[in-house]
Computed example of a mutant assay.
Amino acid sequence: MKKIPFLILSFFLFIACQSEEKSSAVGPDGWLEGNTEEKLDEVAHQLGGFSRTMVEVSYRYSELYWAGMDENWGYADHQVEHIIEAMEDGLKRRPVRAESSKSFMEETLPMMEEVIQKENKEEFIKGFQMLTSACNACHAKEGESFIMIQTPENRTSPVRF
């Protein structure tokens, strides 16, 4: 009696394992093709590695600077929050970068949050200089010291306070 449920379960498992997933295209104009694994691989490729993270962090870094210069403390805090989010997402995709970014994530960014809470432009400028140094130190740890971050000179965003 016990063998029949086992045989039935085995049969369904065998059928399930034998069935091949159908390939289908999804997305606008069907750009995402293949089986589930192929689609996930393509989505991961589209998300990119840490270089895409750095594009967003670079934008947020510049916006942070100009927010501090404008003394727009809410906008400055907003930028730090998004730098943290971008870094966390990038580190999920590239966990090998976690060790070199540890002090940046655990010390530098919280320090910037504290500086912003003081709402003092002179303190902000000092904190921003430390942030810039920390960016460059992290790049050096990754063997990419040729990527030297400097205080922004030109404002590209239309956001003003």
Results as ranks from 00 to 15, higher is better:
Gln79Ile: 01
Lys2Val: 10
Ile125Trp: 01
Glu37Ala: 11
Leu32Thr: 00
Phe14Trp: 15
Gly30Asn: 08
Gly127Phe: 04
Glu42Met: 06
Gly74Asp: 12
Asn136Gly: 08
Asn136Trp: 09
Pro95Lys: 03
Gly30Tyr: 07
Gly27Leu: 08
Pro95Met: 05
Ser133Ile: 11
Asp77Val: 01
Leu47Met: 10
Glu37Thr: 08
Met105Ile: 09
Glu119His: 05
Thr36Arg: 08
Met87Gln: 04
Ile125Tyr: 04
Arg60Tyr: 13
Gln129Phe: 12
Pro28Asn: 12
Gln46Gly: 02
Ser23Val: 12
Val57Lys: 02
Ser157Arg: 02
Pro28Trp: 14
Gly74Leu: 07
Met148Glu: 14
Pro5Phe: 08
Gln18Pro: 02
Gln46Trp: 10
His78Glu: 11
Leu131Ala: 02
Pro152His: 03
Ser19Asn: 15
Thr53Leu: 03
Lys39Trp: 09
Ala86Trp: 01
Ile83Cys: 00
Asn120Arg: 04
Gly27Ala: 03
His78Asn: 12
Arg160Gly: 07
Phe128Val: 04
Gln117Leu: 13
Ser10Ala: 15
Glu38Thr: 00
Met148Gln: 12
His45Ile: 10
Gly90Val: 01
Cys135Phe: 15
Lys3Trp: 15
Glu107His: 07
Lys92Asp: 11
Lys39Asn: 05
Phe161Met: 10
Glu153Asn: 05
Glu37Tyr: 07
Gly30Thr: 06
Lys102His: 14
Leu7Cys: 11
Phe124His: 00
Ala134Val: 06
Glu99Asn: 11
Phe128Ile: 06
Ser19Pro: 05
Pro110Phe: 06
Lys102Thr: 14
Thr151Cys: 05
Gly48Trp: 07
Val159Glu: 11
Gly127Asn: 06
Pro5Ser: 06
Thr53Asn: 03
Pro158Leu: 12
Ile84Asn: 02
Ile8Arg: 00
Val55Tyr: 07
Val26Thr: 12
Lys102Trp: 13
Ser133Tyr: 12
Glu33His: 07
Leu109Asp: 02
Glu144Arg: 13
Ser133Gly: 15
Ser133Arg: 14
Ser157Asn: 00
Pro110Gln: 06
Thr151His: 01
Ile15His: 08
Phe14Arg: 03
Tyr65Asp: 00
Leu32Asn: 03
Glu106Leu: 09
Lys141Leu: 14
Phe146His: 10
Gly34Phe: 00
Asn120His: 09
Asp70Cys: 06
Gln129Trp: 10
Met1Phe: 13
